[in-house]
Structures are given as C-alpha cells and as structure tokens.
C-alpha cells in the first residue's frame, strides 16, 4: 500500500472525541444556567446590582452633567436639552407636513373623482377610507412635541 492510498482513506480526527465531550458538557451547563437565571434569587441579585450601580453612579453623572453644561455655555454651544427641544420641534414640523400631504392627497382624490372623464389612476391612489379625510394629527400630540 502506497502513502497516497493511506492519505485518501477516511481521516481520523483526533479532536472528535474532545468535541463530543465539550458538547455534552456545554449542554449540561446550559440546562444548569437556564435554571439558574430563571430563579427569584437571580432576579433579585441582578436587580440589586443594577440598583446599586444607578445609586452610586448618580452623583458622578450629575457632576459631569453640570460641568458639561457650564463648558458648553462657556463655548456658546447649545446644551443637550436645547438640541433635544430643537429635534422635537423638527418632528412636530414633520407631522404638520405629513398632515398637509394627507390633505393634498384628499384634494387630488376628490378632484379626480369629480372629473370622471380623466383617464388613468388618481395621483392619490384609489379608494381611500373615510378616515383619511380628516387630519391625522388631532391635538393629542406626543409629550414634548407641541410647538414651543
């Protein structure tokens, strides 16, 4: 038998047994861990850790926020709150534009309906439900997004 024939035969993987053991170990560990995280004790322990972290880090975060606010003021840059307020106003404007878009669709639809001779599909599409005729924004705007 030549060396070539030996190479062409089924190769023995020395790690196969190791992999089998590893998989069995991981499978059993997995069951143990799933049971462990599904206990009241785990829930309470993680909750306590999170709570402690939030409590202990609060003074540092507040100090950092104050320092950042002062630094931004010194550089005449807008604060985080000001940027947030601006973003909220943009969203509010977007909603108003979307309302106008909806009304325009309704106008175009009613125009095309009143001109039955005009062939083709209406620009606003066909058969909108009656709910679309009213503005979508009905005064219940999301918090913090009313015009400032």
């Amino acid at each position: 038998m030549t060396a070539e024939h030996v190479d062409a035969g089924p190769q023995v993987d020395p790690f196969e047994a190791f992999r089998g053991m590893r998989d069995k170990y991981l499978e059993s560990m997995s069951k143990v861990m799933i049971d462990a995280v599904n206990t009241e004790e785990y829930a309470q322990a993680t909750g306590a850790m999170l709570n402690n972290y939030l409590t202990l880090s609060a003074p540092f975060r507040e100090a950092l926020d104050k320092a950042m606010l002062m630094a931004l003021e010194q550089f005449s840059l807008p604060s985080r709150q000001q940027v947030i307020a601006l973003a909220e106003r943009f969203t509010n404007l977007e909603m108003r534009l979307d309302d106008i878009d909806a009304k325009l669709d309704c106008v175009l639809e009613s125009r095309s309906a009143s001109q039955p001779s005009a062939a083709g599909v209406s620009p606003g599409g066909a058969g909108h439900s009656s709910s679309e005729a009213r503005p979508l924004h009905q005064g219940n705007s999301r918090k913090g997004q009313r015009p400032k």
Binding site: D105, G125, A126, G127, H128, S129, L136
Partner: peptide
Amino acid sequence: IRKMKSVSGSS
C-alpha cells in the same frame, strides 16, 4: 399606512 395606500393604490 396612509402613504402605503396612496402609493399602492389599494384601500
């Protein structure tokens, strides 16, 4: 959904 109806032409 309004926009989707408008683009698709389906109510």
